[in-house]
């Protein structure tokens, strides 16, 4: 804080530093966000003049079955976006942590790879992998004599959501693992020695010592994956466009359909705003609920 005062100067001289970035941000992000809120209060086909309808769009959403369906699908997707990558990530990190550096590096490099890829392209690749007629997955199943498991994945009501969800799990688990690895490196090795002296098994140590200390990482992983699941668009857009029969419809896809296919831009904006509010709420909840045990004490 002392430093700040020494580097500080009268406001008009400070503004040179912050204004260029802030103006750009205001022009192309914050301004449009505010306008979106405005549009959500109108009925607008994207061409003529918008008609003011107040909160009617939001009221409409509360009785919109498709919107509820999209929320329900999103909740189910969270299992694949958040829970599975989190579990797998912690488990794999615990194993990997003890490995020889060279092997560790190789595995880490492999497991992390999907996370740097464009999800839109991954969606296209996986749609091909899942293709019942031409795709490798079903061909592989038949080769293994498991032809009865060769389902029409992305066309099957029951399996389409898990099929899309598993791609998200595949995308995220290596990333989660790497974050947990770094968390484990932060921990004091003496704690484990102490636990071992106490006669705790590996699993017990993990549960009673490692896990609580990893809460900051768990929070970060939850935050990132939950937000990603609510924001999910690219993957579903390229794999199923929300189909079949809305089985993978999520709010962002619904918004796209409403706006750019059905020209109901006001209603679409309301869906988008609700989605944003959802993200804020979840963000806040995770910050409040998942907090390291010692945070209050310090």
């Amino acid at each position: 804080m002392k430093l700040r005062s020494k580097l500080d100067a009268p406001v008009h001289k400070n503004l040179i530093y912050i204004l260029p970035g802030l103006i750009l941000y205001a022009a192309f992000v914050f301004g449009p966000i505010v306008s979106a809120v405005g549009i959500s209060l109108t009925d607008w086909n994207g061409l003529g003049l918008p008609t003011w309808v107040g909160l009617q769009n939001y009221a409409g959403l509360f009785s919109d079955e498709r919107f509820y369906l999209s929320l329900k699908n999103n909740a189910e997707l969270m299992v694949f976006y958040c829970v599975l990558p989190l579990g797998l990530g912690i488990g794999l990190a615990a194993i990997l942590w003890n490995m020889k550096p060279r092997e560790q590096l190789m595995l880490r490099t492999m497991l992390f790879l999907p996370y740097i890829m464009p999800t839109a392209v991954l969606g296209i690749i996986w749609a091909w992998l899942y293709n019942p007629a031409f795709g490798p997955i079903n061909q592989g199943l038949r080769l293994l004599g498991l032809g009865s498991l060769a389902l029409p994945w992305l066309g099957d009501f029951t399996f389409v959501l898990p099929a899309v969800g598993l791609v998200a799990t595949w995308y995220f688990f290596g990333f989660c693992m790497v974050i947990f690895m770094s968390g484990m490196q932060r921990l004091d090795p003496n704690l484990f020695d102490a636990a071992r002296v106490d006669g705790a098994t590996g699993l017990q140590t993990f549960r009673t010592v490692t896990l609580p200390l990893l809460l900051p990482e768990i929070r970060v992983v939850l935050l990132l994956t939950v937000i990603a699941s609510i924001k999910s668009f690219d993957l579903i857009f390229t794999m199923t466009r929300g189909g079949p029969a809305n089985a993978t419809l999520v709010p962002n896809i619904y918004m796209y359909q409403l706006g750019f296919q059905l020209n109901r831009f006001g209603y679409a904006a309301a869906v988008a705003i609700i989605g944003a509010i959802l993200i804020f709420t979840v963000n806040y909840a995770i910050h409040r609920l998942v907090r390291p045990a010692d945070e209050g004490a310090n």
């Binding site: 992000v29 301004g31 449009p32 966000i33 306008s35 979106a36 549009i39 994207g46 937000i227 609510i230 924001k231 668009f233 962002n252 918004m255 796209y256 706006g259 831009f265 679409a268 904006a269 988008a272 705003i273 989605g275 944003a276 993200i279 804020f280 963000n283």
Partner: peptide, 10 residues
């Protein structure tokens, strides 16, 4: 936190 989908129209 606000996804680009939310403000892409404006």
């Amino acid at each position: 936190m606000v996804p680009a989908e939310a403000f892409i129209i404006p």
